[in-house]
Computed example of a mutant assay.
Amino acid sequence: MTSLLPIVEELNDAPNHAARARWLLEVPLSVLIREQVTIHRLLSAAGFHEGVAYLAAEITALSATRGQDGLAPHTVRMTREYARIGIQVIARGGALEGARYVSN
């Protein structure tokens, strides 16, 4: 028996980076905020550096002071979108790393 929330246990049990990426894209944002320390630890332990960067971008965007338009600063939004695109590619099962195809 672990002390992890069942939804976070799904991340802990993910067999590869593609499954971890899908989890990151599907989990409620409130879970990312509430469990960010545990999620960061699990992603780091798995060596999923792209996932760690995505988590940081999401937390930054969700925590940023918003402007009069209700949006986070442009740089924060762009960083989040670039991180999200990278995670989406990994979630589909592969990513280009340099000139070589990488699949998990």
Results as ranks from 00 to 15, higher is better:
1 M>I: 12
1 M>L: 13
2 T>L: 06
3 S>I: 00
4 L>D: 12
5 L>M: 06
6 P>D: 11
6 P>A: 05
6 P>T: 02
8 V>Q: 10
10 E>N: 00
10 E>S: 08
14 A>W: 02
15 P>Y: 07
16 N>T: 05
16 N>L: 04
18 A>P: 11
20 R>H: 03
20 R>N: 05
23 W>M: 08
23 W>C: 10
23 W>E: 11
24 L>W: 02
25 L>T: 12
25 L>H: 12
26 E>H: 11
26 E>F: 04
27 V>L: 02
27 V>H: 11
28 P>D: 04
29 L>C: 02
29 L>T: 14
31 V>K: 05
34 R>C: 04
34 R>I: 04
35 E>R: 09
36 Q>E: 14
40 H>M: 08
40 H>Y: 08
42 L>K: 10
43 L>W: 10
44 S>T: 15
44 S>K: 13
44 S>A: 15
45 A>L: 03
47 G>V: 09
48 F>C: 06
48 F>Q: 03
48 F>A: 05
48 F>L: 03
49 H>M: 04
49 H>N: 11
49 H>F: 05
49 H>C: 00
50 E>M: 09
51 G>P: 04
53 A>K: 13
56 A>S: 14
60 T>P: 01
60 T>I: 04
61 A>W: 01
64 A>E: 01
65 T>P: 00
65 T>V: 13
66 R>Y: 02
66 R>G: 01
68 Q>Y: 02
70 G>F: 04
70 G>T: 08
70 G>A: 12
72 A>D: 07
74 H>G: 00
74 H>I: 02
74 H>S: 11
75 T>S: 15
76 V>A: 06
78 M>Y: 08
80 R>A: 09
81 E>G: 00
82 Y>A: 07
87 I>H: 05
88 Q>Y: 03
89 V>D: 15
90 I>H: 03
90 I>P: 04
91 A>Y: 04
94 G>F: 01
95 A>N: 09
96 L>D: 08
96 L>P: 03
97 E>G: 03
98 G>I: 08
98 G>D: 14
99 A>R: 11
99 A>M: 12
100 R>M: 13
100 R>Y: 04
100 R>P: 00
101 Y>L: 15
101 Y>F: 12
102 V>S: 13
103 S>N: 09
